[in-house]
Nucleic acid binder design. Structure first.
Length: 256
DNA sequence: ATGGCAAGTAGAACTTGA
């Protein structure tokens, strides 16, 4: 079973990329963030024609998440029931015996701003809700754009980013609190080249110079860690014309 | 030290992202 996550930075602009990528990478589940589409505008027919069922939760202009699946999608939950949030950032569903959570964690803008405080509060409540989910669903996979680089080795220039949003101690502590639930960063279960990232700034030739961050993650509970045989970041679509600034992350699970 | 790119909303110039 292959599970993937990709922040597409507008599904309206990136639908063709998503369909092309799925044709080349027929994963079982793809979690998408930043659809930036209200539900009435969601391209359900095109995705179903590609062989995927889909559930989505969107809004105008910002945010928006979706889960695409080749297998039946059950027990869908939109948003964190513990957290009143006008922003559409969370979808959960049970697929093939795995509880899949698709999350678009707030960006935070800059340390100590209103949005940063929102991000930390959001993550605190996210942790509490994931504890509930984990108690109900031992096979838990939490995929998404976390907007946090876990360690300095996930940052192209740690000195320049030290203490900045996406890298600050409080954000890293909030991510550690998710790890402390028993969830593991599937990427770090395996060896990778240094400076492997999942996001590169559009500006200043960020991708060409590999000035990136690793902020998109697939977290797995212990029973899924035991089944995980690979986790990779696919840089290929970042090279396509008019790309998303994020690359997809894929985890491969062997059958239970 | 700063801004640089992209997308959405609008229909010029802003807000947001990371």
């Amino acid at each position: 079973m292959k599970l993937a996550t990709w922040n597409v930075n507008s599904l309206n602009v990136r639908l063709a990329h998503v369909l092309k990528w799925l044709e080349e990478n027929p994963v079982d589940v793809l979690c998408i963030q930043e659809t930036k589409l209200t539900d009435d505008k969601f391209p359900t027919a095109a995705i179903e024609a590609a062989g995927y069922q889909v559930v989505f939760s969107g809004q105008k202009t910002y945010n928006g998440v979706a889960i695409l699946s080749r297998l039946p999608i059950e027990d869908v939950v939109k948003n964190n029931p513990r957290y009143e949030d006008a922003q559409q950032r969370i979808l959960a569903a049970t697929i093939g015996g795995v509880r899949v959570v698709c999350a678009y964690v707030p960006n935070g803008q800059a340390v100590d701003t209103e949005k940063y405080i929102y991000k930390l509060g959001w993550l605190q409540s996210f942790r509490d809700w994931l504890a509930d989910e984990l108690a109900k669903h031992p096979n838990l996979a939490v995929l998404g754009d976390y907007n946090i680089a876990p360690e300095d080795r996930d940052v192209h220039d740690p000195a320049a980013w030290e203490g900045q949003v996406l890298c600050s101690d409080k954000e890293r502590a909030a991510l550690q609190a998710l790890f402390d639930l028993g969830l593991q960063d599937s990427f770090r279960l395996f060896e990778h080249p240094e400076k492997t990232f999942s996001w590169w700034d559009y500006r200043m030739l960020g991708f060409q110079k590999n000035k990136g961050l690793r902020i998109d993650h697939i977290l797995l509970s212990a029973p899924l860690v035991a089944r995980c045989e690979a986790c990779i970041i696919d840089r290929a679509p970042r090279k396509w014309e008019q790309p998303s600034d994020h690359a997809p992350v894929i985890a491969t699970l062997v059958p239970a």
